[in-house]
């Protein structure tokens, strides 16, 4: 049996003195959409960033425990860089590179990694933009700055940028949080499409979105795992009643 896409054991993360994750152990099976649920500030984004080590970009961040990505211990193994090169990420705020054109935003990853050049690169860019359902809207202005696109288009461009590096695992940090309902629905459709080919870890605080898109997931509260497993069992009660009872029990302690 193939190893899971991601496995964490006793993962703890600190920002300076404050602990953001407490001994988090999760297993993300391959070929699924795995939802990371929880209220704001519960450590969802930190968990995602601990998986691809972006957490270390933050001042004073410290990580303990095991994080295995595609079978590689990314904090200890020498092959961590190679494993992480097979991981893409899409962020909550659309963040195309401001100094690059639409084309170059998608091409920059494969170009700098030496994956393709010339016509091959053109084909790859087109493929990624088509996958991200953006090609028809931008094919006539590929040289325009990425900042000329609308918010929803920018987010799809960021998805294309991540796809162009051919990831096996895609981390998505509330990718629809800053979008209007129409654009959010487009991104959701895209996630469904992509989930046939890549494993997706989707951070969301929207329980309905998790039900629509994910098969398994984890519920976090105050940096700890509350439950992990099929979404239907995590969300057996209404999400708001779960959160209310968690908040109430935290207050009692």
């Amino acid at each position: 049996m193939r190893e899971p896409a991601v496995r964490t054991r006793e993962l703890s993360v600190w920002y300076g003195q404050s602990q953001a994750l407490h001994s988090v152990s999760i297993t993300v099976p391959r070929g699924t959409v795995y939802a990371v649920l929880g209220p704001s500030g519960c450590g969802k984004s930190t968990l995602l960033r601990a998986i691809n080590k972006l957490v270390l970009l933050r001042e004073g961040a410290r990580v303990e425990g095991l994080v295995e990505v595609l079978g590689v211990d990314v904090y200890r193994d020498h092959s961590a860089e190679e494993a992480l090169s097979r991981v893409g990420m899409v962020f909550q705020t659309p963040n195309p590179f401001p100094h690059l054109s639409i084309y170059d935003n998608v091409a920059i990853g494969p170009r700098l990694r030496g994956m393709a050049k010339g016509r091959e690169l053109d084909k790859l860019v087109r493929w990624a933009l088509e996958k991200a359902a953006l090609w028809d809207e931008v094919k006539d202005r590929l040289k325009s700055p990425a900042s000329s696109l609308s918010g929803g288009q920018q987010q799809r461009l960021c998805i294309a940028r991540a796809l162009a590096t051919m990831p096996e695992l895609l981390l998505m940090d509330e990718p629809t949080a800053n979008l209007d309902p129409v654009n959010a629905a487009k991104i959701e459709e895209l996630i469904k499409e992509l989930s046939r080919e890549v494993t997706i870890i989707l951070v969301t605080h929207d329980a309905e979105q998790a039900k629509r898109l994910a098969s398994t997931g984890v519920l976090l509260f105050m940096g700890r795992v509350v439950s992990e497993g099929p979404i239907s069992s995590i969300l057996s009660r209404s999400y708001s009643s779960i959160i209310q009872s968690l908040v109430a029990s935290a207050r009692r302690q």
């Binding site: 933050r58 962020f91 963040n95 920059i108 940028r161």
Partner: peptide, 14 residues
């Protein structure tokens, strides 16, 4: 800004 820095480092380059 951190958002661009994170995007740059998420591309899996050295």
């Amino acid at each position: 800004p951190l958002v661009y820095r994170e995007a740059a480092f998420s591309l899996g380059l050295q």
